[in-house]
Nucleic acid binder design. Structure first.
Lengths: 348, 348
DNA sequence: TTGTATGCGTTATCAT
DNA sequence: ATGATAACGCATACAA
């Protein structure tokens, strides 16, 4: 009990107890191949006995690299953030890396400065960027200037495959709209997010792909949005309710927007899916908890974050850019449609 | 542009350029009082000019303390976690501290080991424990054994005020139930969480307080629950629907449970608040986004987390226990009822 | 296969 | 008020 204030054990204690030099202990810690098996085992036994754990600060200093993976997010969608954290932790458990989280205000020089300070101070080994800030050009430039490794979680495999993990957003969005088309809808509205975000762009493209393939005209009137939040969803829905004729279905490019749309629909006294069908995009499990449970496209953020962290820490620690012909990230993760109760054929 | 690979500037560079010793620079960095004003300003100018940032790893090593605040959570409620992160970041911005996050599986020796490894590896300066793991005795013992400072976010100011930040859960819960009583409800059910959690205990007490004060018998039949998640909410509601007579109102001790209750109610074809009134407990803003918007008790996790971090980093870095007569944390944060549309008088 | 000397970037000690 | 020197705990270079 209460051995709390015991001095921290160091590599020297291990060396002394094992009767070897500290360098030998260091070799054991770092799995050096050139070690007498007997010596290694003896040292390992001592380490286990006294419960020695290498001091990561000292390691970080000597190796000139830290053991922290940074997660940068814009603090909009709690489920996206915690989903990413789950994936990251899955990759980081049983490694010596920790997860350090930092929010980023979008836009403005002040936001840039805040991130710069964070990076200069904590000097994380690498960074994971969540959408939509993963598409922020200024932020990416900052990372490049500071020489900080980073992986972007984004919506199109095309851009910079070596520094991004992407899902097939366009295709998945097309599938979602085709699902509405198959139910018989023809007036399908789109509620989008920030125009600069890759998610907005790709999912809108998928929406357009689906309509075009059916020869359905794309009405600019039926494309609304702006930000990616609940209130925008409400306002967008209300704007759409005033269109004549009213759309019979709405495809919202995020769960937050879909939730806002659902809210506005209820408030208007309309029933889902009787009077309006809704399809969202985000976390399938979360959408299922709405009422009615929302048909949605599940964006596998946890799996993507896990892969991103793997790539970050599996990467050779030197600075040379990968020269493989088949860059990682070429194969996108698949976002998949999860059908629930928010889609029905349109009312006659 | 692209000054990416410039060698990191060190204290030596500053010292050389300023024509002083590195110790003097160190004094400037650490705001030592005994410094010639002129010298200080010259050094500061150089620092600003070349954009020098002290290396936190080296600082951590020399000072034998880290600049990371750990957040331990059980990964159940995304809004609780991100709410806490927002509060922590508010306290940590403009400090040299970073936020390192770690999930904790509840129960089991394996979970203990995982936390121990985390603490031994990252050696955070201090820890913030979120409910319900803030009430985990084994975890607290581990922190004590390892000598890790920690602040628990919890529900009763009584226990260990020096290591916890508490809200007035009992009182707030009583207020919530009184709100239902005032609307005319007499058969009010309670949906609780894990029995070991302080939140469950305190909020149940508040529920009982309110009923007793009105001379209403407490029916064990109307107290259900078990875990703190959506599915438990569903099952609890379904169990309560089978009671005869059915309760006219349900007080759920968390938003997750309330969401499950709401879901089950919809599924059963009952209308809220016409057939059933619901009050939740958690995040007021989130509850407002349900349909109907849920009357709930707002638990100020962000403010509490902010205060917790403040106390952690404002604390003297030595080990002596505070001896004040008025321990911090004695004044609890106030959870407040936010009325929305999920409460009506019971149907005649 | 193992050990010695040195460095990583900062702070603490004890001078002056 | 400022500086020289020695930690802090670990890793690397080079010897042995």
């Amino acid at each position: 009990m209460a051995m709390s204030r015991k001095a921290q054990l160091t590599i020297n204690d291990v060396a002394r107890l094992a009767g070897v030099s500290k360098k030998t202990v260091s070799r054991v810690i770092n799995d050096s191949p050139l070690l007498n098996r007997e010596t290694r085992e003896r040292v390992q036994r001592i380490i286990a006995e006294i419960g020695y754990v290498p001091n990561p600060q000292a390691r970080a200093l000597a190796l000139r690299r830290n053991f922290l993976i940074g997660l940068l997010h814009d603090d909009r969608d709690p489920h996206l953030i915690t989903g990413a954290q789950q994936g990251l932790f899955a990759a980081l458990r049983d490694t010596e890396f920790g997860l350090i989280v930092h929010p980023v205000d979008r836009g403005g020089a002040a936001a840039q400065d805040a991130v710069r300070h964070f990076l200069e101070r904590q000097r994380p080994f690498g960074l994971i960027l969540l959408p939509p800030i993963a598409d922020d050009a200024a932020l990416l430039r900052l990372c490049a200037d500071l020489g900080v490794r980073h992986i972007r979680l984004t919506s199109a495999p095309g851009d910079s495959p070596t520094t991004s993990i992407a899902a097939n957003d366009r295709e998945a969005a097309r599938g979602a709209v085709e699902h509405l088309l198959a139910a018989g809808h023809r007036r399908i509205a789109l509620v989008g997010g920030p125009p600069a975000a890759a998610a907005t762009r790709e999912r809108r493209r998928g929406y357009q792909d689906a309509l075009r393939a059916r020869g359905i005209a794309i009405h600019p009137d039926l494309i609304v949005g702006g930000e990616d939040d609940f209130d925008t969803g409400i306002r967008a829905a209300e704007a759409l309710f005033d269109r004549a004729p009213r759309p019979t279905a709405i495809f919202a490019i995020s769960d937050l927007l879909a939730a806002g749309v659902l809210h506005a629909t209820h408030r208007r006294g309309l029933a889902v899916p009787r009077d309006l069908s809704i399809v969202g995009f985000g976390d399938g499990a979360v959408a299922a908890r709405r009422w009615p449970p929302l048909t949605t496209v599940h964006w596998p953020v946890a799996a993507m974050a896990r892969a991103a962290a793997r790539r970050l820490i599996g990467e050779a620690p030197d600075e040379t850019a990968p020269t493989d012909d088949t860059p990682p990230g070429a194969a996108p993760f698949t976002a998949t449609l999860i059908t629930h109760l928010s889609v029905d054929p349109p009312a006659a």
